[in-house]
Each structure stands twice: as structure tokens, then as C-alpha cells.
Amino acid sequence: MADELSKVFAALADPTRRDMVARLAGSDATVSQLAEPYDVSIQAVSKHLKVLEDAGLVTRTREAQTRPVHLEAEVFDLMTKWIERYRKRAEERYQRLDALLAEMNDGPEAQHPTTSDPGVDPKLHQEGKVS
């Protein structure tokens, strides 16, 4: 799984390939259709597609005279599971941190200002006006 994910993340590291994937999410497209918005050759687009294909993100099929490129959405399920596992771990750590911070804020020091508190006049403590 790690090798597959490494290939997927490496393939998606390039902004042009990410854009191609986003465009393929709408519908299949030919190489020339994918090449239209870029100022690069068809060969360069084919190389990008080869990287995406090697990572399992796209496949090419044959329909009559064309070879449409198809996005393989199942690969995103693999990525989502991997990301979700780490998101859950991070969320658990944040919850523990929140609990610790709440415990620290609810301690006796927070509820009863002392004479060392910069915002409280020490004379008020002596007169019993502040506990």
C-alpha cells in the first residue's frame, strides 16, 4: 500500500497532473482534449498521462479511433483511507490537548487571583475585596 500511495502522491505533486485529474473528474477525455489548455506538446501531455497511468490514477481505453483517458476513482479511496487514519490520530491528540488546557485553566490559580496577578491590586487582597 505504501508504494502505491507513494506513486499516487508523487504523480499528484505536479500541478499540471493535478489539473488533468480534476478535469477528468467531470468526464473522460482524449489526449488532445487534455492538451488544449496547456502550452505544451501532445507528447508532454502523454508523458504526464503515463505518470498518472503508472500510479493507477487513469486508464486509457479504446473507442473506435480514439483512446479516451478515464479517471480511476478507486485510487482516491485508498488515499482517503490513508489520510483519514492520520486525521483521526491528529484529532485524538487535539482532544487530549484541549482536555489538558481546560484542566490547566480550571485549576485553583485560575479561579482565585493571587497577589502575583499583574491585573489585581495587592491592597484589594489585603482588604478582603478580592479572594
Rank of each mutant, 00 (worst) to 15 (best):
L52E: 08
R23E: 07
S27W: 05
Y94A: 11
S46A: 14
S6M: 12
E92M: 11
R60Y: 04
D14H: 02
M104I: 11
E72Y: 02
R67I: 01
L24R: 05
L78Q: 13
V75P: 05
D117S: 01
H112I: 03
R93Y: 12
A11N: 02
S46M: 05
L5C: 09
M20K: 07
E74R: 15
D54K: 00
S46T: 07
D54L: 04
S131C: 09
T80A: 14
F76Q: 08
R62V: 14
E36D: 10
F76K: 09
E91Q: 07
H125K: 07
E4F: 11
L24P: 03
A90T: 04
A13W: 03
E109N: 08
P37E: 10
S41R: 06
R87S: 13
A13L: 03
D14G: 03
V31R: 03
R87E: 05
M79W: 05
S116T: 11
D39A: 13
V69W: 03
S41I: 00
G128H: 10
Q111I: 04
K47Y: 04
E91H: 01
A102T: 01
V130Y: 15
E36A: 10
D14I: 02
Y94D: 12
Q95Y: 09
R87L: 09
V58F: 02
Q43I: 11
A99I: 00
S116Q: 10
E4A: 09
A90C: 10
R96F: 12
L52S: 06
A102D: 14
A73L: 09
E72M: 08
D3W: 02
A99N: 12
F76V: 11
P37V: 12
L52I: 01
